[in-house]
Amino acid sequence: QVTPQEKEAIERLKALGFPEGLVIQAYFACEKNENLAANFLLQQN
Rank of each mutant, 00 (worst) to 15 (best):
32 K>G: 07
24 I>W: 08
21 G>M: 14
34 E>R: 02
35 N>M: 06
18 F>D: 07
42 L>I: 12
8 E>R: 09
27 Y>R: 01
30 C>P: 01
3 T>K: 08
1 Q>S: 07
22 L>R: 12
11 E>V: 06
34 E>P: 03
40 F>W: 14
23 V>K: 02
40 F>G: 03
22 L>P: 15
16 L>F: 05
26 A>R: 05
12 R>Y: 03
13 L>V: 03
39 N>P: 03
11 E>R: 05
34 E>N: 00
28 F>K: 11
14 K>L: 09
2 V>C: 03
41 L>G: 00
37 A>D: 01
43 Q>A: 12
26 A>E: 05
44 Q>T: 08
3 T>E: 12
4 P>H: 13
43 Q>E: 11
25 Q>M: 07
32 K>M: 05
43 Q>Y: 15
6 E>P: 03
13 L>S: 00
45 N>E: 06
23 V>T: 10
12 R>H: 05
10 I>G: 00
41 L>C: 05
31 E>H: 10
23 V>I: 06
18 F>S: 05
2 V>D: 07
42 L>P: 02
29 A>P: 00
37 A>I: 02
43 Q>P: 03
18 F>P: 04
28 F>Q: 14
45 N>V: 07
20 E>W: 02
45 N>Q: 11
30 C>H: 11
38 A>T: 09
4 P>M: 14
37 A>H: 00
4 P>A: 11
22 L>K: 15
32 K>D: 01
6 E>V: 07
41 L>D: 02
28 F>G: 13
11 E>S: 10
39 N>T: 13
9 A>I: 14
25 Q>I: 02
27 Y>G: 02
37 A>E: 01
21 G>A: 15
1 Q>L: 05
21 G>K: 15
4 P>T: 15
32 K>W: 02
30 C>N: 14
12 R>K: 10
45 N>L: 04
28 F>A: 14
5 Q>R: 12
25 Q>D: 10
27 Y>F: 06
6 E>S: 05
30 C>R: 05
26 A>S: 09
33 N>H: 09
3 T>N: 10
7 K>M: 14
3 T>A: 06
32 K>H: 09
7 K>Y: 15
1 Q>E: 09
9 A>V: 09
23 V>P: 02
4 P>K: 13
36 L>A: 14
7 K>D: 06
23 V>A: 13
5 Q>A: 13
14 K>G: 04
8 E>Y: 07
34 E>S: 04
35 N>C: 06
8 E>M: 15
40 F>S: 10
44 Q>G: 09
7 K>E: 12
32 K>T: 03
5 Q>S: 15
41 L>H: 02
39 N>C: 05
34 E>C: 03
27 Y>S: 01
26 A>F: 02
37 A>T: 14
13 L>Y: 00
27 Y>C: 00
39 N>F: 02
3 T>G: 07
8 E>T: 10
40 F>T: 09
1 Q>W: 03
40 F>R: 13
37 A>N: 00
42 L>G: 12
11 E>L: 08
43 Q>D: 04
25 Q>S: 11
29 A>E: 10
4 P>G: 10
40 F>A: 13
24 I>C: 10
33 N>V: 04
26 A>T: 12
19 P>C: 07
40 F>M: 13
38 A>N: 08
32 K>R: 09
